[in-house]
Design a protein around this nucleic acid. Structure first.
Lengths: 238, 238
DNA sequence: GGTGGATTGAACTCTATAGTTCAGTTTGAT
DNA sequence: ATCAAACTGAACTATAGAGTTCAATCCACC
């Protein structure tokens, strides 16, 4: 329920759906099935069954399977981006305790990145990029770049306010994301297993620490007493 | 061995024609086809054609397609790891110019990570992890963990020698990899496009700079005059 | 209570491909 | 030269799934 609406046109037809929102149900179900089976192995019959809909209804709405896939990917990309941008929007303009706020931000971001919506999108992109090369640019333009920019903004403000020392906020933004998120795929088995929260926490804490060692100023303290010298080992992302 | 030998009139095959190592040819060809088409869409006929081999030969050697896939993944994992470990092994024990050596190392590592062997492995892992969950552990144990460890060693040595200030070499190793490599998928379109070398260079340089800001000591200098404040923008990994 | 567009289920066509079979050929070794 | 094992080509079985068709049905709205 909620914003029904026939989503911004994917292929030409954008007319009034007389019925309840079968369309939404199909897209959601298709995402589940694609995420589980991959594009090639996901059968339209399975999607129809999962959506509680007859097969011809799918073809009525979306035409070929390929188009359904594109719509699904766009939808998932939009959802993932929205969640991440919301987290970034909640970052305070004038944080009292920068370290604490960055850590909090890191925790929230990793939660977003480890979410099934995000990880499945990731997996499907990797899986199908050869068959759908354009999908990457589409998703990246609508998802990745805005996120980096949305983090670069606050970082730049913190720099001009004298709480960080950095010359290139975009670069710093990418590096922050790298420091807190690069190990996530390894920790979550590419998103197929729930990650031990304490391991994620350790990575985020260490990432923020390194970030502040590199870019911090006097007011964001010297990492209170090496908070966690040896917690949980981690490995390289696949 | 060698010979192309006239194989009675069957024309235009792809790989070697010696009786000796059909098996190798099949594995190599299968990798190419899997990388291009994905597991489900890769047909055994296509693999046979690419390997210059008859279909029953494949079944003689490997049994079912699933097994062939496992063998291919193990082989590719081995190759990718070997290349990376070789690069890490070349890291000098007592570097004169730590910044330069780390930058060099970063460049070489990104070259490894951007190699088709590595990127295809990555893509196939993401694509098939749901169908082959065990593959991840196998590849990770044999590839990712050793790489992190192989970098942690030198870092630890540098720390005890007083050239770096860090308490957890494993963590620092992960973070170094993150700083230099996290943007690679975005820059190379998940490995499907060659990355502009100057962009990779900029990322590596900036990554090493941040790493040394965080962990460096007096002797590895304050980044010679902000070498490249604004070069090429980058985006978030997918 | 009638009308039209959306929906349904079921049967159908077509194509792709995993895996097998087999008779004949090539190969390296004896 | 001979032999056994590996290889080949081609035909074959069986299955699975994309996309279509159509008569019957449901629902919103007039």
């Amino acid at each position: 329920m909620g914003g029904v609406d026939g989503d911004a046109g994917s292929g030409g037809e954008a007319y009034s759906r007389g019925r309840i929102d079968k369309r939404q149900a199909i897209v959601r179900a298709a995402f589940d099935v694609f995420a589980r089976d991959g594009y090639a192995q996901a059968s339209v019959d399975a999607i129809a069954a999962a959506a509680g809909v007859a097969k011809p209804t799918i073809y009525n709405h979306f035409g070929a399977k390929e188009n359904l896939f594109r719509v699904v990917m766009a939808d998932v990309g939009r959802r993932a981006t929205a969640a991440t941008l919301e987290v970034l929007g909640a970052f305070p303009a004038e944080p009292d305790d920068l370290r604490a706020e960055l850590t909090q931000l890191g925790r929230r971001l990793t939660t977003c990145f480890a979410d099934p919506v995000s990880t499945s999108l990731r997996r499907l992109l990797h899986a199908e990029i050869v068959r759908f090369p354009d999908l990457l640019d589409e998703v990246r333009a609508g998802a990745a770049t805005p996120v980096i920019d949305a983090l670069a903004g606050p970082l730049a403000r913190l720099a001009t306010a004298g709480h960080l020392q950095l010359s290139d906020p975009i670069r710093a933004s990418n590096q922050f994301i790298a420091l807190i998120g690069d190990e996530l795929p390894a920790l979550t088995a590419l998103g197929t297993r729930p990650a031990p929260p304490e391991q994620i926490d350790a990575v985020v804490t260490a990432g923020v620490d390194t970030f502040l060692r590199a870019f911090g100023t006097a007011d964001n303290s010297p990492a209170l007493g090496d908070p966690d010298p040896h917690a949980a080992t981690t490995s390289h992302p696949t």
